[in-house]
Design a protein around this nucleic acid. Structure first.
Lengths: 189, 189
DNA sequence: CCTCCTTATTGACCAGTGGTTAATAATCAG
DNA sequence: CTGATTATTAACCACTGGTCAATAAGGAGG
């Protein structure tokens, strides 16, 4: 009745995710194909479908870590040193830096709304936004409108969505990031 | 030496563009295929390649009109009635409305930076941005920083990029559009 | 050891994509 | 009618995501 021992080193979910992740760092979702993953893993692309029901599922599995990273960055900024205004500014900078340093991932996390999301990535995105909203409110001197926080988020999102075509990482857009963060500070006070 | 008369009704560039445009209204760039265009036109998809060197060229040909429309909307708002502040607000609202009412087109105009742009769409996008920047400055009471105008544009872009996943047109996001426009007004004053 | 059952994997297949190209049909000029 | 030019087709290429019958690999029980 017992199944085959998983100890024998066949293809594992982990191996697939690792390989997909590896390629995902330099290519985007559409450029990483099931066949390119299989080829690098030395198996047929059909085998992958035994472990994942489709391509999206592989990449959604990867995104979990990135949502965590984004949330942690947020937490660390909020709970870190400095006055409220500085922290708030750093929350903005941190968000943009994350987006620019993880462009392929950011795209899948917040930009692609592929056919029939299982709500998987969608839910995590909403959670991240909630955390962002609460952090911004807690760091603000005054009571903010929900729409103000939302507009702020959208403005940050717009920055990442725009600059990812022109820079490879945060470093290359540092000045613009700072300016945008200050612009948003002004809008909130 | 003269070629065949173009008067005979074969396949024309115009017919192809019209059909592509027609499908482009309800589907996005990736969903409209050379074969779907050819099928509707009653020709083989290979024939299209005689008139256009590739798929992108067809769609870039379409975008010209949309850039014009966007620019015209901007002009009309600036030269229309109302005080400066109201006009400025309407510039913001107009931009977002355009983006939400022409989502597929907006995507190609400002979001997709496909492999090796000929600078075709890129250039038009820059021109549109320049027009926007000048309009905003001319309507503003104070001298604005370039970075402020840029941040404003990016915030508008972010709004469209975000909301296009949730609404079908401007009407459905009217409230949020207004709030966002007011938010940006606050940031600029 | 041998059979049975489960799991994991292959490779052929499907329908679709953008793009190329040799052959050919259609048309015109001389 | 002949020859040149243009426009079109259909077969082809190399891809994509996805499915599935056949099968290899291994463990459990007799």
């Amino acid at each position: 009745m017992s199944p085959r021992k998983p100890s024998t080193k066949d293809l594992t979910k982990e191996m697939i995710i690792n390989e997909a992740h590896k390629q995902f760092i330099t290519k985007d979702f559409h450029q990483v194909s099931m066949r390119s993953i299989a080829k690098e893993l030395g198996c047929s692309h059909g085998a992958i479908y035994y472990h994942f029901k489709n391509k999206a599922e592989i990449f959604y599995a990867i995104l979990g870590d990135y949502f965590s990273e984004l949330n942690n960055t947020l937490d660390e900024t909020v709970n870190g040193p400095g006055d409220h205004n500085t922290k708030l500014l750093n929350v903005f900078v941190g968000y943009m830096a994350f987006g620019l340093n993880n462009q392929s991932q950011y795209e899948l996390m917040f930009m692609i709304r592929d056919r029939e999301i299982d709500g998987l990535s969608q839910e995590a995105a909403n959670l991240s936004y909630e955390k962002f909203a609460q952090s911004v409110q807690s760091l603000s001197m005054t009571k903010l409108l929900i729409s103000e926080i939302h507009s702020t988020f959208i403005a940050l999102h717009g920055f990442v969505a725009h600059y990812r075509h022109y820079v490879k990482n945060y470093e290359e857009a540092k000045q613009a990031v700072d300016a945008h963060a200050k612009f948003l500070m002004k809008a909130l006070t």
